[in-house]
Design a protein around this nucleic acid. Structure first.
Lengths: 324, 324
DNA sequence: TTGAAAGCGCTACCAT
DNA sequence: ATGGTAGCGCTTTCAA
């Protein structure tokens, strides 16, 4: 391993000087600088980030805490974060928590032990982060106590409900997601609000966020509410499960049954018929969260620390064309 | 920040003693040990991994280099790796390379600068790693020059071809994946081998691994080879694109056209009709790669450094039932 | 403009 | 069994 001393010796200067050119700090004569730079090249010297981090108590590391990268909503988020921080030379330490507080806790602990400069987290236990000395940005699963990036779930919930209504569904079943996940609840409530002000009748049924979890509840829907002609799902995976079962029992989509999903994860375009859904700008959300954290790290003032991104309707083929 | 000195002072012992109990190394009397442990608890002391890493030139970090987490094959892989290393207290620094050598290079450089203990990589440029002083395990995209974990692409390619043949396809189009990706080529070649020994006729067409990339080539397939009654796709995303287009132009699946995918990514179960495909044990592959790296780090001897996992046919509904 | 040296928090060696 | 201390590779005063 080639160290700063090797460079200093080879260049015939002191380590302090090398350090100065490395950090572009303090005075150093043009010639010396050029020489040092050459030696650095020649020796292929790379500063040891660990030593640097130890002294400065900072690093080029950011912690990213996600529920589960295996859930198709999160890869895009993660990629948005990575691409944005990578531009500024930061790297990501990642952890999947499965929403398990113990795991989250252990990850955060090790993030800290490794001198991460900040944390981006999607967690429902954000109280855990209250006492950290480093900045935290919440992503998707947020609370107002922290800088947050999320999408407009009110708008999304209303939009979904209105879409079904405007396209003629009269008996709507809404599949509520896990109650402890705030984004799911918010859009649920917003949808309910729209529905209850309409003349349509509607039912509510609980589901998980996963395909297999949804499968069971879906069968129940068609048994319990056989006349359902519109389903508002809490996310695309659940919507896909619905679609699946509906097709299996011979319903025509969208003639007999309209379905609307949420998230616009990649699969929603791939299923057949492709899913009408509410698009959350996942990549952008990740990006914005990263930018926000970076800005905080730079101590930039007067920026907005609650970033709410708009969602939009992606009209594909599980809903009918609007009568115009 | 509470340091080892604080603990030493509070416990009335030397830092050396505290270090010894921390590392369970050297002698330390039961009483002293108990006392130190208590103080550690009381002060909620966590050793600084950075300082530790600087001295020992090791860490609890592993680098994970992937092409793109947004490709649905990789989240499972990544999760397998994470779950396995996490058990032993390791954390992951991750990087998405987009197959870009420049990016890969930069990631590896920073991995090294952060004292990662090893690297798990899925890359086609593994020569890049030749001169590293830390262990490297290749995952999925492998070469025999490094410890590797991959699945049996020969078996998979043959299996896919035989499946189509046995279920009665006579004019088969095989969609070859990107030529520079070895796993794709291997299964392609194996499938070709089987096909050429059969009496069926077959065509080959190039596609990318992505949905949008595949879309175009898919249209072409049905124009150029309208009599195709079996499609062997290089992965599930491409298979899904085929399915999509086939349904759109009114083909009946699997009566008019059989389709077989590759990978068994989550979507393949979700599309309709669900996709018959070759299952790669992605999670397990990640896990095995992690275990292999861990074993190498522990300097365990005489283990197998080329781990080839079997694939299997997942028969769903884009192929006909075999005549028995 | 440059260099010497202290020190970031920890481990490991050498004393005792 | 315990403590003192050098040193991991770097940055940053402070002096020259």
């Amino acid at each position: 391993m080639v160290t700063i001393r090797d460079v200093a010796r080879e260049a015939g200067v002191s380590v302090a000087t090398v350090s100065r050119v490395l950090n572009k700090s303090g005075y150093v004569q043009e010639d010396t600088k050029k020489l040092v730079l050459e030696v650095i090249q020649k020796l292929n010297y790379k500063p040891n980030e660990v030593a640097r981090s130890l002294y400065k108590r900072e690093s080029k590391l950011i912690g990213l805490l996600l529920p589960d990268i295996t859930n198709p909503f999160f890869p895009e988020l993660a990629r948005g974060v990575e691409d944005a921080v990578q531009n500024e030379g930061y790297r990501l330490i990642v952890g999947n928590s499965d929403e398990d507080m113990e795991k989250e806790f252990r990850y955060i602990e090790t993030f800290l032990q490794n001198h991460v400069m900040g944390i981006i987290a999607s967690t429902i236990h954000s109280d855990r982060f209250l006492n950290l000395k480093i900045p935290v940005v919440l992503l998707d699963r947020t609370t107002d106590q922290f800088p947050s990036v999320y999408s407009n779930h009110q708008q999304g919930g209303r939009l979904a409900a209105r879409t079904l209504l405007e396209r003629g569904s009269r008996e709507i079943t809404v599949l509520r997601g896990p109650q402890h996940i705030r984004p799911a609840q918010e859009r649920f409530l917003a949808a309910l609000d729209v529905l209850s002000q309409s003349s349509a009748c509607f039912y509510v049924m609980d589901t998980s966020f996963t395909f297999n979890g949804a499968k069971a509840s879906v069968k129940e829907v068609f048994q319990k509410y056989p006349k359902t002609d519109g389903i508002l799902a809490c996310n695309d995976v659940v919507a896909t499960a619905v679609l699946h079962e509906a097709l299996r029992i011979g319903k025509r989509i969208p003639e007999d049954l309209q379905i609307i999903g949420y998230d616009d994860v990649p699969i929603s375009e791939l299923v057949f018929p492709p899913l009408t859904t509410i698009h959350q700008p996942a990549y952008k959300m990740g990006e914005e969260a990263a930018k926000l954290l970076l800005a905080i790290l730079r101590k930039e003032k007067c920026m907005d620390t609650q970033i709410k991104l708009p969602v939009k309707l992606i009209e594909r083929e599980t809903t009918r064309k609007v009568e115009s």
